[in-house]
Design a binder for these strands. Structure first.
Lengths: 256, 256
DNA sequence: CCGTGTGAAGAACTTCACAGCG
DNA sequence: CGCTGTGAAGTTCTTCACACGG
């Protein structure tokens, strides 16, 4: 995992890539590229073209090239990218070289599942501690980890150098938990509770809300259904996956 | 929840509200507004200003007003929005009036948690069926629902009018499951498996990948750490990512 | 006079298309 | 010759700032 010296880098002395201040949209896609690259590496590919990687990651190739160009990446014209090298570059940019310690708060339904999720471990993170406010759950062992009471957060935060907090509590407790995480120095939070968290500047929060995802899908379902209900005039009314019903999609008939 | 007849809508005959073709970014925020509105309603608010709702939803108020204006919403100048009315409007636009049937495929770790997640039911969806490919799991009852073998998907899809599929299988099986869902007419998929799905035009896929969320947070952690390592001068070049650096934040020292 | 609704300016992101390097 | 890297054009989204209605 040592840093490579790329051929042709006009590097001043021992300087490395330097933080390129990536566009947020690019940052959000890098992990997907990384996953695709690992997959390619496992299947024996040593290099990959922008076209190939873009297909694997489900994006358009121009976008991929621009993204990679932002990290000053080094592909070879006429050939493509070196898979292993690109993996290293992206991991380095994402700061994945150091297995950050993750604290998971809330071991209910979802928390249990997250605690057992192998993807965290395999993709650069270490679940370092589990917490819950419910004392009847404290002491329980999940996947080799013991559940601590949330009051122990300060002590363990220091011991484990907690870097990221994952909140999997009910919405009602989420803000309090966030406050406690912030208080012990955590500056990155992944929030699964369906609520907005208030945090100081400098703390990053990302939110995952399962119901919201479904609602967005619902909108598109809804729209697709009402489009098929329209006469020909619509946007090249070919495809039509559902039955080409001239009447409204049965699913959509309601209310009114 | 029948749709209201808004004053002033030039609705043709039995035509439905007319789909205003919302910007995707707006669609993605509507569910959050909706959640905030429900919260406001529960706490007795009858009206809310754009400022107030924006604060509750964690966005800027100009954005909120523009979003709502896209749905031809009706606020009252000098007053704000009628909470109950706005809830209805948004639910109608999102197509939440009809409790779509959701199929959940894969009842492993995560699938179990999702099957038990109350938020689906409370926010417009009905988990209509559980599936798994593992016959040792078939028959198991989770949260009042029996696990069916995936081969029964065609039959049940018709019986239950499945509208949305949720994939919570390992990555290796996800594409096959997606194909089966598409084959039975499902045109909206929420994918929790860490892989890209290929689907025909007209099928919507949304992806939730927990590790990706953490990796994005990791990037920001990483960047924050290297910024604090800098002297006053600001974010100009300097800091190196991997080793080499003249001491960075302790948390950051690794790799090399 | 307050807060919505909105044109217009601005920022961010995507896509195109092609120069140029290996 | 093929594929990367990138200016430039195009699109979408955000923010500003203010006219206007209740």
């Amino acid at each position: 995992m040592s840093q490579h010296r790329h051929p042709g880098v006009p590097s001043r002395a021992g300087a490395v890539p330097a933080l390129p201040d990536l566009p947020e949209a690019t940052v959000a896609r890098l992990p997907e590229y990384l996953r695709s690259l690992h997959q390619l590496a496992e299947t024996g590919h040593e290099t990959v073209s922008s076209e190939g990687l873009a297909a694997a990651a489900g994006v358009n190739s121009a976008k991929l090239r621009k993204d990679l160009s932002h990290l000053g990446s080094y592909g070879t014209r006429g050939v493509g990218y070196d898979v292993a090298l690109l993996i290293e570059q992206i991991e380095s940019v994402l700061g994945l070289n150091q297995r950050r310690a993750v604290a998971l708060v809330g071991v209910g339904n979802l928390g249990h599942a997250l605690a057992g999720y192998a993807g965290f471990a395999s993709r650069g993170f270490r679940i370092a501690a589990l917490f819950d406010a419910d004392r009847t759950r404290v002491g329980e062992e999940i996947n080799g980890l013991v559940v601590h009471h949330i009051d122990e957060l300060p002590r363990i935060a220091v011991e484990e150098r907690l870097a990221i907090g994952v909140i999997a509590t009910p919405a009602g407790s989420a803000q309090a938990v966030a406050d406690q995480l912030v208080a012990v120095g955590v500056t990155s939070i992944l929030n699964f509770a369906p609520c907005v968290l208030a945090v100081p500047d400098g703390v990053d929060v990302r939110k995952v809300d399962l119901a919201i995802e479904l609602q967005i899908l619902s909108f598109h379902e809804h729209r697709k259904a009402s489009l098929t209900a329209l006469p020909g005039s619509g946007p090249s009314a070919l495809t039509s996956l559902a039955g080409g019903a001239p009447t409204t999609d049965p699913q959509e008939a309601i209310g009114t």
